[in-house]
Simulated scan of single mutants.
Amino acid sequence: MIDLVNSMLGVQVLFWTLVLCLGPTVCASDGGRPQVVGPRQPIVAALGDDVILPCHVEPPLSVKEMTVTWWKHDPEDPQCKNKYVHHYQDNQDVEDMKLSAYVGRTTLFTDGLKHGNVSLKITNLKLSDQGIYTCFIIELKTQQRGATIVLDVEPNSVKMMTPNPTDPQSPDPMNGMDIKGEKEVL
């Protein structure tokens, strides 16, 4: 009889452990704790381009019901963590908490949230976008709830357009040049 009671207690403890671990907060063994991961190398993009700051949760985990916050570090502003680049909460983007410079320019891939993709897209890059960004998920009950991503905006990068020889509107790059690449004098 005592063995049966001990077995039932063991099953109940296992049951409640699973319920708590699979609930709204995340629980995993030390080796498999979910963590927010970003690239180790800076992301380099050209002025005016769109860029994706890659970030995800490992192992893959749905974060659709969690709060995802992106902010940009400003070493001259001690309140920078309260100034969001992007804030997602209660299954929607929260626009009124966003820095005005990022309104209408940032997007999360909401379909990817169910797989742990919390990457941020920034459109029409400005020089002021260069800096250090952090993605943070408070509901992850682990030490690694955030990742830092460095964005380097190249001000002198220009998108190169290659002339299309089959397009009659495309200028001939050799027009008016001799074989040495020097301008012909007429």
Rank of each mutant, 00 (worst) to 15 (best):
V94N: 05
E76V: 06
Y88P: 00
M97A: 14
N91V: 05
D93I: 10
V85K: 02
Q79G: 13
A101T: 11
Y84Q: 10
L108T: 00
L113C: 01
E76Q: 08
L125E: 01
Q79F: 06
Q79W: 08
V118G: 02
S119N: 04
G104K: 01
F136S: 10
T123N: 07
D90N: 15
K83T: 13
W71M: 05
N82G: 10
K121N: 04
D77M: 07
I132W: 11
I137E: 01
H87W: 12
T106D: 00
D77W: 04
I137L: 03
D96N: 15
F136E: 09
Q79E: 12
F109T: 06
G131M: 04
H86K: 03
L108N: 00
D96G: 07
N82C: 11
V103F: 09
I138K: 14
D129M: 02
N91L: 06
T123C: 09
D96L: 10
C135A: 15
V103E: 15
C135T: 04
L127M: 09
G112V: 05
K114Y: 03
D111R: 11
N124Q: 09
P78T: 06
G131I: 04
H86E: 13
D77A: 13
M97R: 14
G116N: 03
H87A: 11
L99V: 11
D74V: 04
L127P: 07
T123D: 04
L127D: 09
